[in-house]
Computed example of a mutant assay.
Amino acid sequence: MRPKFAFADGDNSIGRILLAATLLCLPALRPMMAQTTCKFEDLGTLGGDTSMGHAINNNGQVVGVTSLGVPYDPQSMFGFLYSNGQMTVLRTLGGPYSNGLAINDYGQMVGAAATETAQKGTPVVFETNNTWNLTFPPHRPGEGGAGQANGINNNFHIVGAAQVKNLSVHAILWGKDLKVIDLGTFGGNTSTANGLNNRHQVVGAADLASGVSHAFLYDSKTKSMTDLGTLGGNSSSASAINDNGDIVGTAQKKNGQKHGFIYTGGKMWDLGTLGGNFSEALGINSTGQIVGDSTTSDGEQHAFLFVDGVMTDLGKFGADGIFNAGTGINDNGQVVGYAQVATGVTHAVICTLQGEER
C-alpha cells in the first residue's frame, strides 16, 4: 500500500491537493491504535549496559552508539555498526568517544569521534577498519574543530555541523569530492544540517538574527536556503527529508508545545501526539512513513508510526519494556531506535512493521 504522503516523481500537484484535503477533513490528528505492530530484534551491546540505534539503511544495516564492558569506562560510549546479526565497534581518532549517526545504502558511515589530543567530537567517516577526519572551514591556530556528521546520501555527499573560524557552529555540506560548503544561517550565530536526500536537498535548523532557530531547506543546485517557519510558535528544526522532498521535524506551537511535523506542498502540518504535550518526527522513508517519539497521556515516551493521518503507538516492547523512540525507517518497513528493556536499561532495537502498514 502506498501512503497518501508519497508522490510520484512527476507532477505532484494532484497528490499534494489530496494530502491537503485529507488533513483538512480530520478534526484533529489523533493517536489511534491501528493494526500495525512490531516484530522486535534487540541488538544488545558490546559488553556494557546501554546502546541506541540512530540510523538504518535499505539493507537493514544499523549504526548507533553503545557502551563497552570491562576494562572500559562504563560512561564512555562508542559507535557501532550492526550488520548480518553482528555488532562491531567504530573506531575513534585516539580519544574516548565515537558515535555512528548515519549510513547509506552502500554501507558508508559517518558520525563523530574524539581525537587523542582534543578529546572532543569531530566530523568523521567510518570504514570497517579505519576512521578518518572530514575537513571543515579554516580556523585560526587553536580554534575550532568540534562538530559531527549527521547524514550521508548514496552520492557520498555528507552533512553535519562544525565550528567555523569565529567559533560559531554552522551547518556544513561536504559535496562533490567532499568540497566543504558552509551553509550559513538566517542572520544568527548557529546552524546545523541534520539530513539530506539524493536530490541535492539538505534540511536542518538555523538561527535568525533574533536568536530563535527555524527549520530550513537548502537546495544545493540553487544554493538557496528556505525558512520553513513554525507551527505558530518561535522555533522549529527539520530532521529528515526523503527523495520526494517531504520533510519531517519538530516545531513549536502557539501554546509553547513542541510537536512533530511534516512539511509538504509548501505547508507545515502538525502530526499531533500520543496524548501528551510533546512529539518529534525523526525519520521518513520513500513511501512517506514517518517515525519518531511522543509523550503519552501518562507522561511516558513512546515510539510512533505516522501514516495516512494516523499516529500509531509502537511503545509496547515485550511484556515489560517500552519502545521509546523510532529514530529512522527504511523502505522495507524496518524502524531503528531504542527501547527500555525489562531490566530497565536502554538497548538499540529494530522494529520490523507487521500488519496494515506492510
Results as ranks from 00 to 15, higher is better:
residue 172 I to R: 07
residue 172 I to S: 02
residue 173 L to E: 09
residue 173 L to T: 12
residue 173 L to G: 08
residue 173 L to H: 15
residue 173 L to K: 08
residue 175 G to T: 04
residue 175 G to E: 12
residue 176 K to W: 01
residue 176 K to D: 08
residue 176 K to F: 03
residue 177 D to R: 02
residue 177 D to E: 04
residue 178 L to E: 05
residue 178 L to R: 06
residue 178 L to S: 02
residue 178 L to Q: 12
residue 179 K to S: 10
residue 179 K to I: 14
residue 179 K to R: 13
residue 180 V to N: 05
residue 181 I to Q: 04
residue 181 I to R: 04
residue 181 I to M: 02
residue 181 I to K: 03
residue 181 I to T: 10
residue 182 D to F: 00
residue 182 D to I: 01
residue 183 L to M: 11
residue 183 L to A: 05
residue 183 L to F: 07
residue 183 L to E: 03
residue 183 L to P: 01
residue 184 G to V: 07
residue 184 G to E: 03
residue 184 G to C: 03
residue 184 G to Y: 04
residue 184 G to Q: 01
residue 185 T to N: 03
residue 185 T to S: 03
residue 186 F to A: 01
residue 186 F to R: 01
residue 187 G to S: 10
residue 187 G to C: 07
residue 188 G to N: 00
residue 189 N to Q: 11
residue 189 N to D: 12
residue 189 N to E: 11
residue 189 N to K: 13
residue 190 T to P: 09
residue 190 T to R: 15
residue 191 S to L: 13
residue 191 S to F: 12
residue 192 T to Y: 14
residue 192 T to Q: 10
residue 193 A to L: 08
residue 193 A to I: 09
residue 193 A to Q: 11
residue 193 A to D: 07
residue 194 N to Y: 14
residue 194 N to R: 08
residue 194 N to W: 12
residue 194 N to L: 09
residue 194 N to G: 12
residue 194 N to H: 08
residue 195 G to D: 08
residue 195 G to H: 04
residue 195 G to Y: 10
residue 195 G to M: 09
residue 196 L to I: 07
residue 196 L to W: 06
residue 196 L to V: 10
residue 196 L to G: 07
residue 197 N to K: 00
residue 197 N to W: 00
residue 197 N to D: 06
residue 198 N to C: 12
residue 198 N to K: 07
residue 198 N to S: 09
residue 198 N to Q: 06
residue 198 N to Y: 08
residue 200 H to Y: 15
residue 200 H to Q: 08
residue 200 H to N: 12
residue 201 Q to I: 08
residue 201 Q to C: 13
residue 201 Q to N: 14
